[in-house]
Simulated scan of single mutants.
Amino acid sequence: MITLEQAQQMIAVALAHGTDAGWKPLSAVVLDAGGHPLAFARPETASPGRFEIARAKAYGAVMLGMGGKAQMARAEAQGYFMAAVNGAFEGKVLPVPGGVLIRDDAGVVIGAMGVTGDSSDNDAQAALGGIAAAGLSGEA
């Protein structure tokens, strides 16, 4: 289980990572294993639609049990599959990097983090840093 304190720490570290790297403003969400938001942050300089993008990245990861990079590869190889998945999940899946699975010490998926604002690869890197700072493992 991800605590609220861990979720907030993941977000703070991910956003700071982006700021320190000189990236565009990042926004981040942490979802529990059921796809429900635990915490979200969007700096005032980020566009207002960032919650939905971050959530869609994380939602796809937790619901499919695969990180955004694997989802993107699946979408490229089998677009019909990801289109069907997105239909089943009412358009809530965004299959690109930046949606990162969160695993506990036993390797069990306990949630996901979605980061958006810069390139998808940078978003994923920031998420991984945040997850590691909370003492958990991430799978981009």
Results as ranks from 00 to 15, higher is better:
Leu94Asn: 00
Gly98Ser: 05
Ala124Val: 02
Gly91Thr: 08
Gln71Leu: 15
Leu128Glu: 06
Pro95Ser: 07
Asp32Val: 08
Asp32Asn: 15
Val100Gly: 02
Ser119Met: 13
Gly65Met: 13
Thr45Arg: 13
Ser120Thr: 12
Val115Gln: 03
Asp121Phe: 05
Val93Gly: 01
Ala77Gly: 10
Thr19Glu: 15
Ala140Arg: 07
Ser27Asp: 13
Gln8Gly: 10
Ala33Pro: 04
Val29Ser: 03
Gly114Ile: 00
Val13Gln: 07
Tyr59Ser: 03
Ala83Gln: 15
Ala73Trp: 04
Gly79Lys: 11
Ala132Val: 10
Leu4Glu: 11
Val108Trp: 08
Met1Phe: 15
Gly130Val: 07
Met10Asp: 06
Ile11Tyr: 05
Leu101Ala: 03
Arg50Gln: 09
Glu52Asn: 06
Ala46Ile: 09
Arg74Trp: 12
Ile2His: 00
Asp121Lys: 14
Ala41Tyr: 12
Val30Ala: 00
Val109Phe: 08
Glu139Arg: 06
Asp123Lys: 02
Arg50Pro: 07
Thr3Ala: 11
Leu38His: 03
Asp104Gly: 11
Asp104Gln: 13
Met72Arg: 09
Gly107Ser: 12
Ala70Arg: 10
Gly98Met: 06
Met1Val: 14
Gly60Val: 02
Phe89Ser: 00
Ile53Gln: 08
Val13Pro: 10
Ala46Thr: 09
Gly98Cys: 11
Ala16Phe: 03
Ser27Phe: 05
Gly67Tyr: 00
Ala83Lys: 11
Gly22Lys: 12
His17Arg: 08
Val29His: 02
Ala54Glu: 06
Met66Lys: 11
Ala21Asp: 13
Glu139Lys: 03
Tyr80Asp: 14
Ala39Ile: 05
Ala61Val: 01
Arg55Ala: 04
Ala33Val: 11
Glu5Ala: 14
Arg55Asp: 05
Lys24Ile: 07
Lys69Cys: 06
Ile131Lys: 00
Met1Lys: 10
Leu38Ala: 03
Val93Cys: 08
Asp121Pro: 14
Thr116Glu: 04
Gly130Ile: 02
Thr116Gly: 07
Glu76Ile: 08
Ser27Pro: 14
Trp23Asp: 07
Gln6His: 06
Gln125Arg: 13
Gly79Glu: 13
Gly107Asn: 15
Glu90Ala: 15
Ala124Thr: 00
Met63Lys: 10
Leu31Arg: 01
